[in-house]
Structures are given as C-alpha cells and as structure tokens.
Design a protein around this nucleic acid. Sequence first.
DNA 1: TCCGCTCTGCAACCCAGAACACACAAGGAC
DNA 2: GTCCTTGTGTGTTCTGGGTTGCAGAGCGGA
Lengths: 262, 262
Amino acid sequence: MKDECAVGLAGTPAAGERPWSPQKREVDVLTTGDPEAFTCLNDVDLFADLSVAELESMQLMVPERRFRAGELVFSQSEPVTSLFILRSGRVRIFRITEDGKALTMAILEPGAVFGEMLLVGQRMYDNYAEAIEESVICQLTVDDVERHLIADARIAVRISRLLGEQVARLEERLTDLALRPLSARTAKTLLTLADASRPSMLGQAPAIRITHEQLAGLLGATREATSKTMAEFAAEGLIRQSRGRITVRDRNRLGTIARRSS
Amino acid sequence: MKDECAVGLAGTPAAGERPWSPQKREVDVLTTGDPEAFTCLNDVDLFADLSVAELESMQLMVPERRFRAGELVFSQSEPVTSLFILRSGRVRIFRITEDGKALTMAILEPGAVFGEMLLVGQRMYDNYAEAIEESVICQLTVDDVERHLIADARIAVRISRLLGEQVARLEERLTDLALRPLSARTAKTLLTLADASRPSMLGQAPAIRITHEQLAGLLGATREATSKTMAEFAAEGLIRQSRGRITVRDRNRLGTIARRSS
DNA sequence: TCCGCTCTGCAACCCAGAACACACAAGGAC
DNA sequence: GTCCTTGTGTGTTCTGGGTTGCAGAGCGGA
C-alpha cells in the first residue's frame, strides 16, 4: 500500500492501484480569471496582517508547482518539508489504514493552507494529500517558514487561531461520528460543503462539486450507504443531484436532520 | 479518593504520547521535596519558558478552587471565562448530544491545562468539564491571559505546539473510530492510558484507574460492549482487572490488536 | 456489621450500516 | 456514432455493536 503511494507521488497514478481513492476527475474547466494577478500569498488568511511590502518580499521565494488530478502532494513515505498553499484546484487530505481503507480529513479549496503541522514542529504526520483536480500549489520551505513565520508574533496568533478552529471542528466531527447516525452526518456535511464552495456564478446556484464516493470518505461510511442516504434526501426534495454535483434545496430541513441523534 | 501528591516521583515514563493529557512536564528536580513549594504554574508545560521571577509575579494572581467529585467545572450554560490548570485530582472533558449521550474528549491528569480554546478567541465552546475525583483547579482569568500570555511570544509558541498535538491526536482518534473495530480502539486506548498514568509506586504496577463506563465514554461505545471486550482481553491474559483498576500485562499483543482494522 | 450504591458480567434481541454483487447511465475520447 | 471509464441505484446477506434487563460482587459508609 505504502509503496503504491510512493509510486503515485513520483509519476502518473495508476488508477487501479489506489483502492482508497476515487478515480481521477476531469480537469476543472471553470478555472477562470487572470492567473498572473492572483498570487499565492494574497488571499491567505494566515498572512492577512502583513503589509504589501512584506508580502512582496516573500513572494519572490515562493515557487509553485502543478499537480495533476490524482497526484499525491505528500505522503507518509515523503514527509512534509514545506508549507503548502493551494492556489487553484482542489486537494483532499486523508489517512489510510494498513488494509487500504481511507478517511478524508478535509477537502481544500483555493486559498487553503496545508501541511500546517510543520509550523508546530510535528514532523511525523501520517496524512496524505492528493490533488483531486488539476491543481497549482505553492510551497514555502521550512527555511522560509522559520525565518518569516515562526518569529512573527502576528503570524503566530493566526496560526493558533487556525489550529484552534481545527480542534473545534475535529472535536465536533468526532462526537458526530460517535453519536449520530449516517443521515445526520450527511446532512451536516452537505450544509458545510455548501457554505465552503464558492458561489460558482453570480452568487446563485451554489452546486457542490463532489461525488458520492468522496462524500463517503468524508463521512466515514461506504459509498453505498451514502448513495442511499442521498437518494432519500433527493426524494424528499432536500437536495438535487446530478453526476458529481449536488445542490442544496432546503437548508432548514437538512439542518433539522443534522441535529438528530441515534 | 486518593489525594495523590501532584508532585510525581522521579523516573518519569519515556512519555511517548499522552493523548488525553497535555504533556505534564517532567518534574523539576529542584522543586521536588517541598510540597508547599508546588504551585499551579510550576509544572505546566505552557509556562516552561518563563523565568522563576516571572512565574512568581503571576503566581499571586492565580486563585484556586476545590471541586468535589462529580462537580462541573464548566459547561455550555456557563461559558468558559478563564483558563484552567488542574493541580490535583482528575477532570473529564466531554460533549453531549441533545438526548444525553456523551463522548469523552479527554481525561486530564494533574498539570494539564484546559479551557485552552479561550486562548484562541473561541468563546463559544460546547465542551463540558467535570471533576471525576475531588480536584483542585487554578484559574487564570481572561485578563491574566491577555496580559501575560497572548502577548508573550514564548508562550504563543507553546500554545501552538499544544494545539498542534491536539489536532494530531484528534485526527488519529477520528480515523480509528471510523475504521477500526472496538477491540482495536480499546487496546490502543489502554496502552495510551497506561503511558499516561504516572507510575503509582516505586515505578512498578502501573494500574490504570478507570471504570469500564468511563472507558466506554472515551471509546465511543456502550459500557456493555466495552465490558465484553475487556473480559476477552482479561481471559487472554492481556490485562488484569479489578474494580475500577486495570493493569496492562502484555503490551505487545495489545499493540498488535490495536493495529487491526475492520 | 449490614446496607446501599457503584461496578461488572451476562444473555437475548434488534438494527444500522458494511460487504458483495450487479445493472445501468452519463460523459469523454476517439 | 461507439467505446470505455467513472458515477450512481438497488438488493441481499451478514455482523458488530446497540438496547434492554437483570444478577451478582466489591466497596464505602453508618
């Protein structure tokens, strides 16, 4: 298993070799806008306190790299040695067990920072990161990080806040997984995803781009069980779905379901 | 209730991970011996970088309070307005659903800091904290915190580290809950608890003081299922148990079981 | 010493969700 | 159009663990 990951990292991922991973997706045709204008650091919360000048000085040192859909950004065998910033595309952070079953920790949208454990001195970190679409990712090396981030009090505060939020989310997810039925978790996750996905066009029709399989990975459930739940939701008119795309129709009722336990 | 002297004995365990309790620092050899000299702040990792003088200046402002077994330290209705330090006794951090089912987030040993979300500006935080034994707890008010902690870069780093570890632990627990059977989670938790519990006497017989019910709360399982698993472990000679007390007999085999999935 | 409470051990039944196994449909690539 | 891959719908069987209910056992307190 682990070997396969290493292979994936190096070259083209062979689909069949990754039982835990949904197959590769089509490239995001929707990526628009002027690529030159958007830089890695601008849109990142972590650096919000820095002045334009400071940002520009860092800018120079930030190399970026393109990943193809399905490619691994980092894995256990290739431990994290830099801080990543997702510039475009989407990345899935996940963990796997020895026998290949996976749980998705997060699906990141552009602007997200990952590999944050580096900031905290946690070298060993057994998460994997995989581009689920063609993605462009900037990397800050440990050096950059140590020189500009760790030292800076403004950044330190941001880091703490980031981690604090992450702790809160994880605690909530943990109790949900332990105490709530699949339907509730599904509903809640859909609502969260709906909020997270940037409005695609003119602020309307916020479709979530995700497959049942990916969703299942997030829920800690099988694809089948997830599909069944989704079919029920659709039948109730709570959502509308098409291949790889979900639209939330009734937030209120979903919210109610999300709050149910056992 | 045993009123364990919070000043642990020397020969601290190799201290790998102690998931439920933020690192209790190795006791400073210089401070041992005089129980009166022990104050809330000494033994806390978070303040490790502060000089003796600094510690003493803060010391004055730290009131402590005694909680009886079963008493709530904070709850949702009583939102957290200070940072807590457990001086003696034990505290359980947990969450509950509307219908009263609970999941334990952590069981804290002396030296642990809790209510940390305060440090990160997360006022709203729906955890509960309950003393499971008679406990003495010190409180740092928001003011203290803001004046002495947030500002101090040395502390900020410690906070980040603390939160980072917590994130790593939570992620692991989450995947275990999602992907591993009860037996594996139980085995792993027992090993962790065994490491966490300070050696009771002369470095031998490290009995874990916990009831099946409390353990079940940590595992996200029912008391019955937990009891059954424990009975099996006992029958196999992996552990030995008596009322409220568990002794690990065979770490290796437990470790193997802990690694099993599905 | 006896009482009462908390902790642990069963056992019988039930059910959500996992596993397995297909069928088919929607797009892309050609 | 025709393949062919990837995503979705559905049924069946199986089982881990939840639920319920009770009995006995250890321990602390009066």
